[in-house]
Simulated assay, not measured.
Amino acid sequence: MLKKERQQMILDLLQDHTYLSIVTIAEELDVSDMTIRRDITELSKQKKLTKLYGGAQRLEILEKERSTEEKIQTKVDEKKYIGKVMNSLIPDNATIFVGAGTTILYALAELNRKNLFVTTNSLIAFNYLKEHTDYRILLSGGEFSPITEEFVGEVAIKAFDNLNIDFAFAATNGVFEDNITTAQFDEGAVQSAVFAKSKTKCVVADSSKLGVSDVYTFKRLSEIDYLVTDSHISAEQFEYYSQYTEILKEEMK
């Protein structure tokens, strides 16, 4: 692969992510870490990206998160797989929280436990559950975010004050080192508040989001019980992220 071609691929990868680690880029392009370090240094001098410790960030961080409509057709098989893993973790008669995002939306179709009470701040999750299940559902109030189709803000946070949640499942835009990240402070604040009311805390992320960071860290991976991902996670990724929490990549027996 020519250097010019490789460096353009790095810039293309950064268009989909705020931040990527050197290790992640090297694995994606199948080259050495040292090669990527040199490329990042050169691209930084050309003012085509921002060089950060351990990785690179696109030069201009977009103010708007990608919409649900833009994300809806990405990694569909992986998201459905994650739903099967989630379902194996949940017992009948549980109270669960499901957050916003297309990963959780596709995962919902795989849930088949009985007598669930599902709480959510996601409008698309609520609509799916209303149309396809007979579960009890609680939709939080709050300020509606049209980009992610979820409710955020103080009212949304207070909706969970008096709830006792057995399992909480929150999505993320990226997991980098011990950081669980998202694009907007308000989105992460709701998920953090829900985790505070939950007995078992779970983050769901397909394996492409590992080694990736967005703007705001809303929780530490070491503070949650499970990272639920798909079977494409590499052995290196599994070993690395296992130092922070337990990783579920297969259905529990």
Rank of each mutant, 00 (worst) to 15 (best):
Glu149Asp: 02
Glu177Cys: 06
Ala171Trp: 04
Leu138Tyr: 14
Ala170Leu: 12
Phe151Leu: 12
Thr148Cys: 09
Ala183Phe: 15
Ala168His: 03
Leu163Tyr: 07
Asn173Glu: 13
Ile157Met: 13
Phe167Thr: 04
Leu138Arg: 06
Ile147Thr: 14
Ile137Ser: 01
Ile157Arg: 10
Phe167Trp: 14
Ala171Pro: 00
Lys158Tyr: 13
Ile165Ser: 02
Thr181Ala: 04
Thr172Ile: 07
Thr181Ile: 11
Asn164Arg: 14
Phe176Leu: 12
Asp166Thr: 04
Ala156Asn: 08
Phe160Lys: 03
Leu138Cys: 02
Asn173Ser: 14
Gly153Glu: 08
Ala168Asp: 02
Ile147Cys: 05
Thr148Ser: 14
Ala159Met: 11
Thr172Asn: 06
Phe151Pro: 00
Thr172Lys: 08
Asn173Val: 07
Ile147Asp: 09
Ser140Ile: 05
Lys158Ala: 11
Leu138Ser: 03
Ile165Tyr: 04
Ala156Glu: 07
Phe160Ala: 02
Phe144Met: 06
Phe176Val: 11
Phe176Lys: 08
Glu154Tyr: 15
Lys158Trp: 12
Asp161Ala: 12
Ser140Phe: 09
Asp166Tyr: 10
Val152Thr: 08
Asp161Ile: 12
Thr182Gln: 09
Thr181Tyr: 03
Asp166Met: 03
Ser145Val: 15
Ala168Pro: 01
Ile157Pro: 00
Phe151Ile: 05
Asn173Arg: 12
Val152Lys: 08
Glu154Gly: 00
Asp178Asn: 15
Lys158Ile: 11
Ala171Gln: 04
Lys158Gln: 13
Asn162Tyr: 15
Thr172Trp: 09
Phe144Trp: 09
Asp178Tyr: 08
Ala170Thr: 10
Asp178Met: 08
Gly141His: 11
Phe169Asp: 01
Phe176Thr: 04
Ser145Gln: 15
Ile147Asn: 09
Asn173Ile: 06
Ala171Gly: 13
Asn173Phe: 12
Ala168Met: 08
Phe144Asn: 01
Thr172Pro: 01
Asp166Pro: 00
Gly153Ser: 12
Glu177Thr: 09
Glu143Ile: 15
Thr181Leu: 08
Asp161Val: 11
Pro146Thr: 10
Phe151Asn: 01
Glu143Tyr: 14
Asn179Phe: 14
Asp166Asn: 08
Ala159Pro: 00
Gly141Asp: 04
